[in-house]
Simulated assay, not measured.
Amino acid sequence: MCDKILNKSSGSFLWVRLILQEFENVWTEEAMDQFLSEVPEGLNDLYLKMVNSIEMKKSMMPLAKSILTWVVTACRPLTLDELRCAVKLDLNQTLQNLAKAVPSICGQLVFIDQSDRIHIIHETAREFLRAKNAYSELSFEKKQSHTHIGSSLLRYLSAVPIKSDERPSHLREKLPRFASRTNSMPHDTSLVDYACKFFSEHIHSCSLREDDLMGEISTFLKGNSVLSWIEYIAGCNDLSNITKSGMNLRIYLGRRAKYVPPTDPSFHIIEDWVTDLIRVAAKFRTQLLAHPNSIYTLIPPLCPPDPIISKTFTKSSHLAVKGLPAGTWDDCLSRIDFAHDRITAVGHGEKYFAIGFSTGKILLYDSSFLRLLITLPTFERVKSLKFSHDDQ
C-alpha cells in the first residue's frame, strides 16, 4: 500500500498527507485500494474533489463559504472565537463547538493548530480557491473578498463598543442601526483586536469599484468609534497601526479617485482623516501611550482648529485652549536637537530613518515613534546613508 501511495503521489508530500488523513476513516485494505484508485493524482484535482464533497452538503454551503473566505483572506490566522464572530457577521448564525464544526464543514481544506487558530491547509489551496477559472461556488475573487471583509470590519467597529466603560459618559452613544444583517449584530467583542489592527489592510487590497465601502469608511470616521479605535490601538502600546492605517487609506483614495466626482463628501472626509491620523500619532505619541483615553477630551482641543478631528470633537470636550496658532498642521511633526554634533547625512526606509554625523556616529530611529533604537559607531565622517527596499 505504501508503494502504491508513493507511486501516485508524484513526489508531493502534501498529497500523501491528505491521502493518509482520508485513510483514517477507512478500515479495510480493499476500501483503501478503491479509494486510492479514485483519488486524483494532481493537487488541484484533489482540491476539486474536496470542494465537490463539501458542495454535496447544500445546507452547509453558506457556512463553508463564509469560513473559507475569512480563513483564506485574513491577514493572520484567526482564532476559533474570532472566526465564530466573523461567521456571525456574515450569516447571523452562531457556530457551536468550532473545533469539530470547522473540519466537518470544510473537510481537509483547513486545519486547527494547537493554539486554536485556523489555517488553510497549504498555499496552493489558497491559490486554488482564488483562481479565476475555478468552477466552484466556494471560490471567490481576491479583491472582492477583501472588500467584503473590510466592509464587515468597519460596520463591526462602528457598532460594537470598544472599552465602553472607559469612555467619558457624554461620548457614550447608542449603537447605530444598519441595514439587513447588521441590525442583529451581536455585541461579541472577540473580533475587536483583529478588526482594529487589520481593517485598513483589507481596504488597501479591496475592489475600487465598490461605492458602498467609501460610505462605510466615512461613517466610521465621522462617529465616536474612530476615537475608540485610536484608544484601543494606543492601549496596545503600538501607534504604528494608526500611521499604517492612514497610509493605507491614502493609497485607497489615490486609486479610488478616478471613480468618484471631485465633490464627493465621503472622499474629502477620508482625505482629511488621513492627515489627522498620521499627525495625531506623531504629535501626541507620548500622551497617547501614557493615557490612551486622552484621545476623547484632551487631544482634540489641543490640535490646530482646522483639522477634522478638532472640528468634530472639540465641541464635546470640556477643555478650552487659547493661543493655538490658526490654521492646520504645520510641516514639523517633531524636532530633534543635536546641539554639539554636525549632521552630514540623513536616510530613511519604510520603518526607520538614520542620521549620520561628522564624528562618524550614526543614530537609527523608529519612524513611527521617533524613538532612538541604536547608535552605530564608525571611524570616519558619514557622507551618505541609504536603506534597501526591506529597510536593511
Rank of each mutant, 00 (worst) to 15 (best):
M1I: 09
K8Y: 08
V16Y: 02
R17H: 12
L18T: 05
L20A: 04
T28M: 07
F35M: 13
S37L: 13
V39F: 12
K57S: 07
K65Q: 12
R76L: 04
C85H: 01
C85R: 10
A86I: 12
D90Y: 06
A99S: 15
A101P: 02
V102K: 10
I105H: 03
I112W: 02
H122L: 05
R130C: 03
A131S: 15
Y135N: 12
Y135V: 06
E141N: 11
E141M: 05
T147N: 11
L154Y: 09
Y156E: 07
K163W: 10
K163I: 09
D165S: 10
P168W: 04
S169C: 03
H170E: 12
L171D: 07
E173Y: 01
K174C: 06
P186C: 03
D188L: 13
F199E: 04
F199Q: 08
S200Y: 04
E210M: 01
E216S: 04
F220N: 01
G223I: 05
S225Q: 11
E231H: 12
S240R: 15
K244N: 09
S245N: 11
A257R: 15
Y259W: 07
V260R: 14
P262T: 12
T263E: 11
D264H: 13
S266I: 08
W273S: 00
L277N: 04
L277R: 08
K283L: 14
F284W: 10
I299W: 07
P305W: 00
D306F: 07
P307L: 07
T314W: 06
S316A: 14
P325M: 11
A326M: 15
D331C: 11
S334Q: 14
H340P: 00
A345L: 09
E350A: 10
F353C: 00
G356R: 12
T359L: 14
I362E: 11
L373K: 07
P377G: 07
F379L: 07
K386M: 11
S388Q: 08
